[in-house]
Amino acid sequence: MEDSPLQLAKREMQLSLRNKPVWVGLFAAGFILGLAGPFGTDQVLRLIPRLIYWTALTIGFYFVGSFIGTFLNRVFAAWNLPFWPSVVIAGAGAGLAIFLILMGINIALFDVPLDCATCHIILGANVVGISIIVTVAIVYIQQSLLQSAPVQEGAGAPAILKRLPLEKRGALVSMSVSDHYVEVVTEKGTELLLMRLTDAMGETGDTQGLQVHRSHWVALDAIKGARREGAKAVLTLTDGREIPASRTYVPSLKEAGVLPR
């Protein structure tokens, strides 16, 4: 049960909206650009309007680019295109969208000559190129974090709970793969974490649970019911959700007493 490209893009947006470092970085970048006044904005805007202009553009373009880039990258992945070419094409698509929005804003606010095709081509190439570079850099950093994510082992409380906000720390219910993230569900809420499912399972501590699918892990205490569907199975959890169990993991469910032998 993987998210659709649109659902994943929305989740990425929600994560960014709740991420304080992202907002700090965006305001800092907007402030620096406002002071520098690139692309001639220092000639047509005073300092305060220029700061507002660049801060608004930075925030808007970040979220537009992130949304479109994530959406396109997931679409290309569904088409089984090579990973890095997909990232580059997604970055170019996001850059093109940003360029069109930028042109619309500049036409509305400034006296932009529409007959200077060379000017628009140069600006578009710069925007698309920067978008590709930023997209590739972000994905590379994410991949590096995935490869270096530490697996914390030990008895007692699940170490993975330390990664969650305080208000969402509770008994583990399930963990599911969502692209590069793991959706951790507890009795107190849901959170997406940038890590691998195998690493997340290594941080469950004394919680008794089973991997029931290549994309799902469930806590045994959270299983309310189970039914067979051919060679596979479907688990009903205490929160009402249903999690599929693939044929590979049915023997483990039988061993745990979840399914009859």
Rank of each mutant, 00 (worst) to 15 (best):
G60H: 06
L51A: 00
L72C: 12
A155N: 14
G154N: 03
P113M: 06
R74Y: 04
V44I: 11
G104E: 11
F67C: 02
Q142H: 10
L47F: 06
P85A: 10
G129Y: 03
V136S: 10
I141W: 12
V87R: 10
R163H: 15
G93E: 00
Q142E: 15
L47K: 09
N73D: 14
F76I: 00
I89N: 02
L164A: 01
G60A: 04
I89D: 11
G93V: 07
C119P: 00
F99C: 11
V151S: 10
L109C: 09
I98T: 14
L102T: 04
N106E: 15
M103L: 14
I98D: 08
V75P: 01
L161D: 08
S86T: 06
Q143Y: 08
L45N: 10
V139Q: 13
L161E: 13
A78M: 14
Y140M: 13
L102K: 11
L164G: 02
I68A: 00
A149M: 08
A56I: 04
P49F: 04
A78V: 03
L161Y: 06
V128D: 00
L51E: 02
L109G: 08
L96Q: 07
N73T: 01
I107Y: 14
D42W: 05
S131V: 01
Y62L: 00
I48D: 02
T58F: 03
P165L: 06
I48V: 15
I133H: 03
T135F: 09
S131Y: 04
P49L: 07
N73Y: 05
I132M: 14
L114E: 12
V87C: 12
F61Q: 03
P158W: 15
T55D: 05
Q147A: 15
I160K: 04
S131K: 02
I133C: 09
G124S: 09
T70S: 15
Q43Y: 09
R74K: 03
G154E: 07
V87Y: 08
F83V: 08
W79R: 13
L146N: 11
R74N: 08
W84N: 08
K162A: 15
L81N: 05
L72Q: 09
Q147T: 14
G154I: 03
G60E: 07
N80D: 13
G124F: 02
Q43P: 06
G60K: 02
V75R: 13
S131F: 07
Q143A: 13
L146G: 11
N106Q: 10
G104V: 01
S148T: 07
A92W: 07
F76L: 12
L161K: 04
F61K: 00
E153G: 03
I89E: 05
T70W: 06
R74Q: 12
Q143G: 05
A137M: 05
L166A: 09
S86G: 15
A125S: 12
F71I: 08
L109P: 10
N73F: 03
L51C: 01
A108S: 14
I68D: 04
G65D: 12
F67H: 11
T55Y: 07
I107W: 14
V128H: 02
S131H: 08
A159H: 13
V88T: 12
A149Q: 14
L114A: 11
F61V: 00
N73P: 01
I133V: 10
I107E: 14
E167H: 02
I101E: 01
L100R: 09
I98G: 03
